Amino acid sequence: MGTPEAGRLGDVTRVLAGWQDDEVPVQLHPGDVGWFWRFGAERTARATRTWSRAGQLLAVGLLDGPDLLRLAFAPGTLRDGDLARQVAADASAPGRGALPAGQVYVEAPAEALVRDLLAEDGWRDGDLWTLLWRDLGAPVPDPGVHVEVIGPEQAHEWAEVVHASFEKSTFTGERWHAMAAGAPYADARCLLARDERGRAVAAVAVWSAGQGRLGLIEPMGVHRDHRGHGYGRAITFAAARALRDLGSSSVVVYTPSTNTGAVATYLSAGLRRVSERRDLYRAAP
Results as ranks from 00 to 15, higher is better:
135 D>E: 13
207 W>P: 11
26 V>D: 11
64 D>L: 06
151 G>Y: 00
213 R>L: 07
83 L>R: 06
187 D>K: 08
117 L>R: 05
162 V>T: 01
65 G>W: 06
94 P>E: 09
159 A>W: 02
154 Q>T: 10
133 W>I: 08
168 K>P: 00
175 R>N: 00
227 R>Q: 15
238 A>D: 05
206 V>A: 08
10 G>F: 01
115 R>A: 11
211 Q>K: 09
152 P>I: 00
21 D>M: 01
61 G>P: 07
21 D>S: 11
125 D>K: 12
268 S>D: 13
87 V>I: 15
158 W>H: 10
132 L>P: 03
256 P>R: 12
18 G>Y: 02
177 H>N: 00
10 G>W: 01
173 G>D: 10
116 D>G: 11
65 G>P: 07
2 G>I: 06
12 V>D: 06
84 A>T: 02
150 I>G: 05
146 H>D: 15
49 R>W: 13
18 G>F: 05
274 V>M: 12
182 G>V: 06
206 V>L: 08
225 D>K: 08
121 D>H: 09
277 R>T: 10
173 G>Y: 08
24 V>C: 05
181 A>V: 06
67 D>N: 14
81 G>F: 00
117 L>H: 03
106 V>Q: 04
213 R>P: 07
53 R>L: 10
91 A>Y: 03
167 E>W: 09
13 T>M: 02
43 R>A: 15
283 A>E: 14
